[in-house]
Each structure stands twice: as C-alpha cells, then as structure tokens.
C-alpha cells in the first residue's frame, strides 16, 4: 500500500477525547549535517507542539551518532521509560533490525522513518522519503532540459545505501538521453569537501554543462567553487533536499540553480504525528507512507520556502 501524504500538520486537530498517559520514544541520528539538523529541528518542534496540544502524551527524544549507541538508547527507553510507541530513524538498517524487532514483539507500536529495516513486516508504520525518486527526479530534469551530448559531473555523498539508491535512480533516468557523466566522486555531504571536489572538477574538465550535487550542502560548496573560477554562466547546479537558500535562489530565478528536488526532513513530524494519532486511538494509522521527491521549480518554489526553518 502506497499513499502520498500531503500535509501531516493538518492531523493535529484530531486529538480529542479522554486519553491515557502514553509515552512515545523517538530515536534519531544526531545533527551532524544540515539535513539531520533539520530533522532534529522538526522533531523537537513537533514534540513541543503535541505536548501543548495533548498533555497526556509524554515524549522521550534521543539523538545518536552511531548504531551501537542507538541500540543502547532503545534498550534504555524500553527498560526505564516503559514506552508505548517508538519512532525510530535507524542509523543503519542491519544492526538495528533485531533490537527494533524485539521491541515490536513486546507490544510496543513501532514507526520506522526513512531508513527501512532489513526485514519486512516488523514495523506498524513506515514513513520514508524515496531515494530512488530523489535521484530519478533530478536525472529526469537533466534528460528533459539538457541537449544530447551534454556533460555532467556528479557529487556523491557518504558511501551508503541511501547514496547508492539515489545514484541508481539518477543513472536510470539518464539512460538513453545521450548525456555524458564525466565523473562521480564522493563529497560526503560536506560543504568543504564539495568545494574542493568542484575546484578539481573545474581544473580537470574544460567543459561542464551541469552538476548534480545530490545534496544542498554539497551544492553550496560547488557553487562557491564555480563562482571562484568565474564559470557561473556555463553550467547549472542541481542539489537536493530543499534547503532554504537554494529554494530562495530558485524563486528568484537564479540561472545557475534552476530547480531542486525535495527530500523533506519534516517527514519526522509526519511520523511522530501519525504515531501519536494511532496511539490516542483517533484513527488507525498503520501502513507505508512513501514521500516521493518533488521537483521545485521557480513556479512552485514559494510553497517550499519556510522562513524560520534552520535548513
């Protein structure tokens, strides 16, 4: 079952009636890069909002920087806080599968966000972005707008499943388009690495028509390097995840940054809200919600621009 979820925030109003004190545990990666930072931002804001709206709900929010710590956090939540529901964004799929399974089997409601577990059917609810669609949307834009024989360089993120799925989607969309991928190297979702990598791409290739930076932090670095080399007019840069700065450029009609691809960190809000909803019994919210990536264009940019978001 696949549904496209449009606006999770609309669901808040539905909480009503007498509720028992329920505890929801939330475990997400620490804010080590922009997207994860935004994830934390949205998670904290949602928790505050829900607490205010429903005093019977209790939340435990933990952030981790490695899978081992995440497993310990989960164990602590079950042992000391006696959680009724768990919202988890697994740091890595493999090591978290068994611990989450144990928690699910003990009767706790489990919502998995973004990164699927390696075994199906454990979770009650799965909310995720679509990495294949993330890459495919960017690739499709290139295939549609660039000429036959256009030259593209690609910046990959940290070598991982997420990165692989995105790149596979991107390459699939380019197939048969006649667009040439000159090089793919890792910039590790880091601005500084992307800046250096772009400098080197620029030295290496006299002709580049487009850069798929795959992530807006990387796009920031790439743009700075292009500007430094004075080659702004030559190529377009497409990032991803809808960073405020990028969306702003798009809505202002920047030629170098014509479009962007969404991968909304607010999916964590959706997941928490749906879990709360399921717990309070207003509506059963199980299943799978895949948030496909959308193309942000100058025409629709306004609706993706959030002034107070940190990302």
């Amino acid at each position: 079952m696949k549904k496209t979820l449009i606006a999770g925030t609309a669901l808040i109003g539905l909480y009503a009636g007498p509720a028992l004190a329920e505890t929801i545990g939330i475990s997400i990666p620490a804010a080590t890069h922009g997207w994860a930072g935004a994830l934390n931002f949205h998670a904290e804001r949602t928790v505050e909002r829900l607490k205010a709206a429903n005093p019977e709900l209790d939340f435990v929010l933990t952030t981790t920087s490695d899978p081992g710590q995440q497993v310990s956090d989960l164990e602590d939540m079950v042992a000391t806080r006696n959680i009724d529901a768990l919202v988890v964004l697994p740091f890595e799929s493999e090591p978290l599968t068994a611990p989450v399974q144990r928690i699910a089997e003990s009767g706790v409601w489990v919502t998995v966000v973004d990164r699927g577990l390696s075994q199906e059917g454990i979770e009650n609810l799965y909310v995720a972005g679509d990495n294949d669609s993330f890459g495919r949307t960017a690739g499709k834009y290139f295939a549609d707008t660039l000429e036959d024989g256009a030259k593209v360089v690609v910046m990959r993120g940290i070598a991982s499943t997420v990165d692989n799925e995105r790149v596979a989607g991107f390459q699939a969309a380019l197939e048969g388009s006649g667009i040439e991928v000159l090089a793919m190297d890792h910039a590790n979702w880091n601005r500084d690495n992307a800046f250096n990598l772009m400098q080197d791409y620029l030295s290496r290739f006299p002709e580049i028509d487009a850069v798929w930076a795959a992530d807006d932090d990387q796009a920031v670095g790439a743009l700075a390097a292009i500007e430094q080399a004075g080659r702004e007019g030559e190529m377009i840069v497409v990032g991803g995840a809808g960073m405020k700065e990028m969306v702003d450029r798009i809505r202002k009609g920047d030629k170098t940054v014509p479009v962007n691809v969404t991968y909304p960190p607010s999916m964590i809000s959706t997941a928490i809200e749906m879990t709360a909803l399921g717990l309070t019994g207003a509506a059963p919210m199980s299943g799978e919600f895949i948030l496909a990536s959308e193309l942000i264009t100058p025409e629709n940019a306004e609706k993706f621009y959030f002034e107070d978001s940190p990302y």
């Binding site: 922009g34 932090d217 940190p310 990302y311």
Partner: peptide, 11 residues
Amino acid sequence: VTWLADGGTLS
C-alpha cells in the same frame, strides 16, 4: 557549535 547552529548551519 552544533548547539550554536541549532543542529544546522550558521551562515
């Protein structure tokens, strides 16, 4: 620095 940046980026 993570705290100063609220988990995001200080620009």
